[in-house]
């Protein structure tokens, strides 16, 4: 009985020693995580990153704007005391689509010429062009309206003001 208590004490003592040795070999995961997160949050490009730490291995995740920032995240994490290695799971955001180019409106001179050509065969149709706006007056057969509009719409007008009377 005495012997088993002694054995128990020895085991307990060695377990305590091992635990003490392990914890003293570097900062705890939670501390590393806090340090890495603090570093990331200090940089605007990395503020959205999250770091998970297990046994000194840091796993980075989140979206960054480019490859350079992704590499920088890894460098920053590696610089934190106690970090053994870094798994870089950051994703790079796709580039934003280019802004749509403004609509090009034809100048009045070529537009007027184009309109003259387009209405030539539609007797009864009159057209006026001013500041890119085509104003249609007069009359047209219903069957012809679509054909005329199809051709006027390719001339790059600002708008078409259709005041035609449909016969």
């Amino acid at each position: 009985m005495k012997r088993s208590i002694l054995n128990y004490l020895i085991v307990l003592a060695s377990a305590t020693m091992i635990a003490a040795t392990l914890s003293s070999c570097g900062p705890k995961d939670a501390d590393i995580k806090a340090a890495v997160t603090k570093q990331m949050q200090a940089m605007p490009d990395m503020s959205g990153m999250t770091a998970d730490v297990k046994d000194g291995v840091v796993t980075l995740s989140g979206e960054v704007k480019d490859d350079a920032t992704k590499a920088m995240c890894e460098t920053v994490a590696k610089g934190v005391a106690g970090v053994k290695s870094v798994v870089n799971n950051c994703t790079v955001a796709p580039p934003p689509p280019p802004p749509a180019a403004p609509v090009v409106i034809a100048a009045d001179d070529p537009l007027t010429k184009g309109v003259t050509d387009a209405i030539k065969d539609f007797t009864g149709v009159k057209a006026d062009v001013k500041d890119g706006v085509i104003t249609l007056t007069g009359e047209i057969k219903k069957a012809d309206l679509k054909t005329l509009m199809m051709s006027l719409n390719t001339l790059k007008p600002k708008k078409i003001d259709n005041q035609l009377v449909i016969k």
Partner: peptide
């Protein structure tokens, strides 16, 4: 032509 009968609204330029 269905959405804007007889193309009256003047709010679309369709260059197809």
């Amino acid at each position: 032509n269905k959405i804007d009968p007889d193309f009256r609204a003047g709010d679309l330029v369709m260059n197809i």
